[in-house]
Nucleic acid binder design. Structure first.
Length: 279
DNA sequence: GAGCCATGGAGAA
DNA sequence: TCTCCCTGGCTCC
């Protein structure tokens, strides 16, 4: 299940396997059939990720926009016949990429890619990211930090794991109003997101535990969580915090389950007005 | 086999 | 804030 780093990995694999080549497109499942027919035989120019969105550019200014949603995935192979509900197969003489279960898979005409990118915020994994632009939005927001971090028009690519983990690593109260974050805290938060997501891009998994805490985390039998890595708080509700032992708490914030340690992330006096649901 | 849950997001109300 | 869409893995019966 993908956050932004997953899409950047997919873009890299697509570029390595198909960029500059004449490709075949098909839709074994049938739901992308007309678009695949238009793409079939065209040269793929390049693939690019912006946040959780993937853009695959072909000659004649045609692009495919993919959003994986919760369940979507790409699998790469050697061109063996597709298995299961494959929405889009991209193939070269020696390689194939199968897309299954995406939230969105659509053909974009010239200009539509730019329009879509303009709606997205700053992506910590892109070289052209402008953290100052994101800061100007954060700095004015009255929403809780935990909500702003997931707003794709502010920061593109951060999902539920990175949000919980970066807030823990920075010892920030998830319910603090974003506008009260100090500039210095923002700079460190952004740098940490770049580090964490770059690691995820390189390794294909999310590991957020700092070296000084690894002895505590690794002091038990090795395992991988559902998300495929070692983390401080994500999906560890009621389990002891790796750092202080306090039970990790959880609550739905911004339509997703937020996890935090009430001791390591002490309450800010700048909290969003407390409500019954937030006490 | 049924039911539930999940790293997301658009659109309606 | 709610509903819907997309899929697969897990638990429970």
């Amino acid at each position: 299940m993908p956050e932004g780093h997953t899409l950047h990995r997919v873009a890299g694999e697509l570029n390595a396997g198909f960029a500059g080549l004449r490709t075949r497109s098909s839709s074994p499942q049938g739901r992308f059939e007309a678009a695949a027919a238009r793409l079939d035989g065209l040269r793929m120019e390049r693939a690019e990720a912006h946040g959780k969105h993937l853009f695959v550019e072909f000659e004649h200014d045609l692009s495919v926009h993919v959003h994986l949603g919760l369940y979507g995935s790409f699998t790469f192979g050697d061109g063996a016949p597709p298995v299961g509900a494959v929405r889009w197969r991209l193939a070269s003489p020696t390689r194939s990429a199968d897309l299954r279960g995406p939230n969105a898979c659509e053909l974009l005409e010239p200009g539509e890619v730019d329009a879509m990118s303009r709606r997205l915020g700053q992506d910590p994994l892109r070289l052209d990211a402008d953290p100052d632009a994101a800061w100007s939005r954060v700095h004015r927001s009255r929403a809780p930090l935990a909500t702003v971090l997931m707003d794709q028009s502010v920061i593109a690519g951060v999902g539920n794991v990175f949000r919980a983990e970066v807030l823990f690593r920075q010892r920030l109260d998830p319910f603090m109003e974003a506008r009260f974050l100090r500039r210095r805290e923002w700079d460190v938060l952004w740098a940490d997101l770049v580090d964490l997501m770059s690691y995820g891009l390189r390794h294909g998994r999310i590991d957020t535990v700092r070296p000084e805490h690894e002895p505590e985390v690794m002091g038990r039998p090795p395992r991988e969580d559902d998300h495929g890595g070692e983390v401080y708080v994500y999906r560890r509700a009621a389990m002891p915090c790796h750092v202080c032992g306090t039970a990790v708490r959880t609550r739905v914030v911004g339509a997703r389950n937020l996890f935090w340690c009430p001791r390591c992330q002490p309450r800010s006096r700048r909290r969003v007005v407390p409500s019954a649901a937030m006490v």
